[in-house]
Write a protein that binds this DNA or RNA. Structure first.
Length: 412
DNA sequence: CTTCCACAGGAAGGTCTGGCGG
DNA sequence: CCGCCAGACCTTCCTGTGGAAG
């Protein structure tokens, strides 16, 4: 039994340390974010004199380094604080995980309570009691607390923010500053104006990386991640270019590189090549879409199969025409009858088509066929066999799928 | 130029679920 | 526990429209 793992461990690895390429990894150098680091440090520096820094709001799309920069500067700050004997606390909270008023206060408070029996329970106390305990606890000594609220737009209700932005008026020794991080540029529009002005005392915007910058980042990490000489020289530029095209998302670029290498490894290839990158790109895309399709509502799944069926029929008849809403609706109704599922109205189905379009599974453009009306031109933008592979697992729609020879699939 | 198809897509209202304050 | 409300999900009804055909 041990042997199979031994062989996998030994020759498999192109990696020195795969973790370096994961999004959770905290690099010690952040290329092309020097300015942002400097800025944020500038804002934080009063903490070292025992004063509360301004609250900061940080915008930027995913993979632009917001979290990394904030954590990086925060860690440095705490270190410096220790050197200079100033009490500085840096608390990072991801609001996707801690998403309610209660849990937020609880989380911050527990950060300062060592003794297990005094910790605030997950549930059971009134929220204002948690608040009182929080203020009492942190106010025992004079210190500066920086609370980072990552993905702040995921917080439910703005009560939590309202409480936190005013907490300093209930404290006489400690001081609290907030850092809000969001990738939703419209987030503040819906906030209570008082919260908005308080949170936005300072604001920073993180712009996406361009291809050249992504390339630097990848090179930096690749040095630690891979054994020397494993990457074909064009691999990193290609990953960078592809990710830059997408949104300048560093996380995507790193994922792409990691998965490329994993594919190469699985093939027992001694080197990662451009071909692996292309394959990885396809895999990432399919994996993403697979997840979306799997979680689609039943009606959309049926609709999707109806599209595949219509598309195949068109191909068989060798016409260049694409599918129209009317034809598709008929096929959809037909599928619903076969499955004994109640069908939706055409109006509703039209909206479902738009949704599938927005999800990138199909494309649906409005075209006019003159005398023959206005409709949408519908076509798949995802390989049909991949979709069927996923929908086979759904017992409700599965009866529509038949298996021909040679792994071929057909729809009723 | 007008007609007219086959829908697009807006508006309003119904139904159901689930969270929340009292 | 109950009533209320918001929001997701649909239906019904509707007006609007690009462009080939006539």
């Amino acid at each position: 039994m041990a042997d199979i793992f031994d062989s996998l461990l030994e020759k498999g690895s192109l990696f020195l340390n795969r973790e370096v390429l994961r999004p959770t990894y905290m690099p010690d150098v952040l290329p092309h974010r020097e300015k942002e680091i400097e800025n944020l440090a500038q804002i934080f520096v009063p903490a070292l004199k025992g004063e509360a820094p301004s609250n900061v709001f940080i915008y930027g799309k995913t993979g632009t380094g917001k979290t990394a920069v904030t954590k990086y500067v925060g860690n440095q700050l705490v270190k410096k604080g220790k050197e200079q004997n100033v009490k500085v606390n840096f608390i990072y909270i991801n609001c996707e995980v801690v998403d309610t008023h209660y849990r937020l206060l609880q989380n911050i408070a527990n950060h300062f309570i060592e003794r297990w029996e005094e910790r605030i329970p997950f549930t059971g106390l009134p929220t204002d009691e948690v608040y009182t305990r929080l203020t009492k606890t942190i106010d025992r000594e004079s210190r500066v607390i920086i609370v980072v609220l990552d993905e702040i737009d995921k917080l439910k209700g703005d009560e939590a923010l309202y409480t936190l932005t005013r907490i300093n008026s209930d404290l006489s020794n400690a001081k609290v500053s907030l850092v809000g991080i969001s990738n939703d540029l419209k987030f503040t529009e819906f906030l209570d104006p008082r919260v908005k002005s308080s949170l936005g005392e300072e604001s920073m915007v993180f712009y996406p990386y361009d291809a050249k910058q992504l390339q630097d980042i990848l090179e930096h990490r690749a040095k630690k991640a891979f054994k020397p000489g494993v990457l074909t020289p064009s691999v990193i530029p290609l990953c960078a270019a592809l990710a830059a095209q997408e949104h300048g998302d560093a996380r995507r670029a790193l994922d792409l590189l990691r998965i490329s290498a994993e594919l190469a490894e699985r093939e027992k290839s001694p080197k990662v090549t451009e071909r692996h990158v292309r394959k990885a790109l396809y895999k990432i895309e399919i994996d993403h879409i697979a997840e979306v399709i799997r979680t689609l509502p039943l009606q959309s799944k049926i609709l999707l199969l109806a599209i595949i069926r219509e598309e195949r029929e068109k191909k068989a008849m060798d016409t260049r025409e694409s599918i129209t809403t009317g034809e598709l609706y008929e096929r959809y109704r037909n599928f619903c009858r076969k499955l004994r599922v109640e069908s939706l109205t055409q109006r509703r189905v039209a909206d479902l088509i738009s949704e599938l379009d927005m999800l990138g599974i199909i494309t649906a453009r409005v075209i006019s066929k003159g005398r023959y009306g206005r409709t949408r031109e519908i076509r798949l933008s995802t390989p049909a066999n991949e979709i069927i592979k996923i929908l086979q697992e759904d017992d409700t729609v599965n009866p529509l799928i038949f298996y021909g020879g040679k792994g071929q699939t057909r729809l009723i």
